[in-house]
């Protein structure tokens, strides 16, 4: 029988399904975190073995590899998740989420390239964390709201990282590695089990 309660549940469900992309996979957060931690460890090794400007190219390559691997994994797992939830992967909702995530992220990416070009390396890690955090907060309106808090934490870490230069890798690993794993696990536990 239909009651006020089932009506309310249906309304809430429809509002969510028609305005947010809810198939974002928490599992992909866990993987991204693992890649980032492995990347951080490799970066330490590179910096130990080749101190100075020579380490620049391999470090950039490493960061790109972590980014590409994370993206590929996220696309794969989110597509799988969407199929399970009977939601389309490529529709207005996912496009809106990507656009809103993408604007701060692209701004940060360009900002980062300019910093590197001008050899202001010490700001690289905090800039990545802060812009990534802003992107998550902006995108959270169009997907699972939980990533809003992840965004706030990333920004906080980024700001602390500007204050304590010299621990860049540590903060980078904490933000992109540890936080992703914790958050991914929470979201997996909450939505995908």
């Amino acid at each position: 029988m239909r009651t006020a309660e089932t009506d309310l549940r249906e309304i809430k469900n429809l509002m969510e399904r028609s305005s947010r992309f809810i198939s974002l996979s928490g599992l992909s957060g866990i993987f991204a975190g693992i890649y980032a931690l492995v990347g951080t460890w490799l970066a330490y090794r590179i910096m130990e073995n080749t101190p100075g400007p020579e380490s620049f190219a391999p470090l950039v390559g490493l960061a790109m590899a972590v980014l590409v691997l994370s993206l590929v994994t996220a696309i794969f797992l989110t597509t799988r998740n969407a199929r399970k939830k009977n939601q389309k992967v490529w529709d207005k909702l996912s496009q809106r989420m990507l656009l809103n995530l993408g604007i701060p992220l692209l701004s940060g990416g360009i900002f980062l390239l300019i910093l590197l070009y001008r050899e202001m390396y010490s700001l690289a890690a905090p800039v990545m964390l802060i812009f990534y955090g802003l992107a998550l907060i902006n995108g959270s309106k169009y997907t699972l709201n939980d990533i809003r808090y992840l965004g706030l934490l990333e920004i906080a870490l980024g700001l602390i990282a500007v204050a304590y230069t010299g621990y860049d890798l540590l903060f980078w690993g904490a933000g992109f590695g540890v936080l992703h794993i914790i958050y991914g696990a929470l979201m997996y536990w909450k939505y995908e089990r």
Binding site: R2, D7, L14, M15, R17, S18, S19, K88, D91, K92
Partner: peptide
């Protein structure tokens, strides 16, 4: 009516929605 309730729920959180999108969701 359940369908009217559904249409309104979707339109409350979106500015404009196409016929086909509503059809898919409902």
């Amino acid at each position: 009516n359940r369908i009217k309730l559904g249409i309104m729920s979707i339109l409350m959180v979106n500015d404009t929605v196409d016929f086909n999108e509503i059809k898919d969701v409902l």
